[in-house]
């Protein structure tokens, strides 16, 4: 089968649909996933195809959505719970962190929690302070949970299928800005990408750009521009914040000896902080320059377009950061 061009939302829909056909235990639940066809249209047509038993609209109850998914998963189902946007997952933090991520360990392996929480993430659309989060690093802080953040439609399909098939709880965030972006997607229904494996999105020998999700696009644009000046960037798309593929990052760094971390999230206690710490701890002898970080500005996000965009990372900020260490 050939690859097919489609936006990320369609790739996600394809993955979810294939897994529901493949495994009766897989079902979706969340706000507006059924009759409304999904806020982000990822579950479009599902209610008609799979029926009310497997496409379950919920009340606006984020604690119960995540918590009931935990219980259903423990009992043997494989829920894919949608939290409409990651901003509302703060209401589910206890169910995700204290329950989903801990139950397998706390009861010494008696229970498994094979669930996926899907949530739209990201900002830049004047959604204002409470609706403009990319808090994936908060979730990646906790052992027991996997955190996946795809950057392309192809990855979105392969990663979501892996998440659904895995026996561990996965927080899976989908960048709102990337939902409409097209890309080639394998049509095979056994296309599954391994959990915890990063991907080199562009090869280069001068600087390693470590990034994920929406940061991949900014990094690739920056690499394109810098290539014209003879600076070749290697773009490492982490894909998963947990497990974190430090091996791929280290391998690239050993070649380039320089690194810029690019992320949509806030700068403090971030993926940038973690990668910088890992590199200085394990790759000190290879280090030719300080690790730079390009991230959101350290402010709550405002409404007005002019100032919101000032806070958002972009390709030019990545170019500037690379120039500082070349």
């Amino acid at each position: 089968m050939a690859d097919k061009n489609m936006p990320m939302r369609e790739a996600l829909r394809m993955a979810l649909r294939e897994e529901m056909i493949r495994d009766e235990r897989v079902f979706v639940m969340g706000e507006e996933v059924g009759a409304w066809q999904g806020t982000h249209r990822v579950t479009r047509g599902f209610l008609e195809e799979f029926g009310e038993k497997r496409v379950r609209d919920t009340p606006i109850s984020e604690m119960a959505i995540a918590g009931a998914a935990v219980g259903a998963a423990m009992a043997g189902l494989r829920p894919v719970a949608e939290i409409m946007t990651i901003n509302f997952a703060f209401l589910s933090l206890d169910a995700i962190i204290n329950h989903a991520a801990k139950i397998h360990y706390m009861f010494n392996g008696q229970f498994r929690v094979p669930m996926v929480i899907r949530a739209a993430s990201g900002w830049g659309d004047q959604a204002t302070a409470t609706h403009s989060h990319t808090p994936e690093p908060i979730f990646a802080h906790f052992p027991g949970l996997y955190v996946g953040c795809p950057a392309t439609p192809r990855d979105a399909k392969g990663m979501l299928k892996a998440a659904i098939r895995d026996d561990n709880p996965v927080l899976f965030t989908e960048s709102i800005a990337l939902y409409p972006k097209p890309g080639l997607v394998p049509e095979e229904d056994d296309f599954v990408l391994p959990i915890g494996k990063a991907d080199i999105k562009r090869e280069g020998r001068h600087v390693t750009l470590v990034t994920y999700a929406r940061g991949v696009e900014w990094s690739l644009q920056a690499a394109e521009q810098l290539a014209k000046e003879g600076v070749e960037c290697e773009v490492v798309d982490l894909r998963w914040l947990r497990p974190l593929d430090t091996a791929t990052v280290f391998e690239s760094f050993q070649k380039t000896n320089r690194c810029v971390v690019v992320e949509e999230s806030l700068p403090y206690y971030s993926v940038g902080s973690e990668i910088a710490a890992q590199l200085q701890e394990h790759m000190f002898d290879y280090m030719d320059a300080p690790v730079k970080r390009v991230s959101a500005m350290d402010v709550p996000l405002p409404y007005a377009r002019e100032i919101e965009l000032m806070a958002l990372p972009n390709a030019q900020k990545v170019v500037d950061a690379v120039r500082e260490i070349i």
Binding site: A64, G71, A75, D94
Partner: peptide
């Protein structure tokens, strides 16, 4: 299915286990 230490934390788990049934 266990004792749970966060007050109320097990209640949606009960709902989820019942859903499986």
């Amino acid at each position: 299915w266990g004792g749970y230490a966060i007050v109320g934390g097990h209640l949606p788990l009960a709902a989820g286990i019942a859903l499986e049934s």
